[in-house]
Design a protein around this nucleic acid. Structure first.
Length: 231
DNA sequence: AAGGAAAACAACCGCAACGAC
DNA sequence: CGTCGTTGCGGTTGTTTTCCT
């Protein structure tokens, strides 16, 4: 039986105090990021390691860029979401100074609504049925509509199988055809190397990982501006 | 000014991946 | 090669703030 990550009875929960923040920052500045499990005790914090890690990554790290998202950041998030789905850490990785939690929250509170207003289904980045042609859709935040309207990318190609098994099983086989089509669309819109649609439908776990790697690599090396050009 | 609703933000939880042994 | 411990991720919930009536 695995031990829980922290002893529940002796840990603080909820908002962090200034003193706690200070202890954590000082400890990490002195010792660096190390074993999160042992860090709280070493730093004299009554927190579980997970909580410390989250606090550091999301709020205390010196390289964080706080404040409002710029328009180009918004744009990039939308486009990356269309490509990657809810993989916030990957998306955040393309936005210097932003954390996955921040991006996720911003998506849920701002961008999701924004897309809905534009007549775009934020789940799949396609035009909603009741907005077959929205005069200005796609102007406000760039050309998200372009790919969004044609792709079914909330389940990005490389995660069609596996990660979304439950959703897929619910949707049934017709969705596979839909996803299948999305892959073709992605190829058209995003210029991303994806295995042929024929193999995609039956891609196994290993191939899926491989695809994921391919896309990750492309994102890793493609400058943001290049991505913008594609979308 | 007060109260309720909505939005925004912060943090927790559970699970999966990964590495060490 | 299997098991275990740790870390990281994504979903979700709780709290605070802002807006509206």
């Amino acid at each position: 039986m695995r031990k829980p990550c922290c002893e529940k009875q002796d840990t603080n929960k909820g908002a962090w105090s200034k003193q706690e923040d200070q202890k954590l920052v000082e400890y990490i500045q002195t010792h660096g990021e190390g074993c999160w499990r042992t860090l709280p005790q070493a730093a004299g914090l009554l927190r579980c390691g997970k909580s410390c890690r989250l606090r550091w990554i999301n709020y205390l790290r010196p390289d964080l860029k706080r404040g409002n998202f710029a328009e180009d950041e918004e744009d990039l998030i939308i486009k990356l979401h269309a490509l990657l789905g809810n993989r916030w850490s990957l998306i955040a990785g393309r936005l210097p100074g932003r954390t996955d939690n921040e991006v996720k929250n911003y998506w849920n509170s701002h961008l999701r609504r924004k897309l809905v207003k534009m007549g775009i289904d934020p789940n799949n980045h396609r035009l909603s049925h009741n907005h077959h042609r929205l005069p200005n859709a796609g102007t406000a935040s760039g050309s998200a509509t372009t790919s969004a309207s044609r792709s079914h990318a909330s389940h990005p190609p490389e995660k069609i199988q596996g990660e979304n098994d439950q959703a897929l099983s619910d949707a049934g086989s017709c969705l596979e055809a839909e996803n299948h089509r999305a892959m073709v669309d992605l190829n058209l819109d995003l210029s991303i190397t994806i295995p042929s649609p024929q193999t995609a439908a039956i891609v196994d776990e290993e191939e899926r990982r491989q695809n994921e790697y391919t896309i990750s690599r492309e994102l890793e090396f493609a400058p943001s501006s290049t991505l913008l050009l594609f979308m």
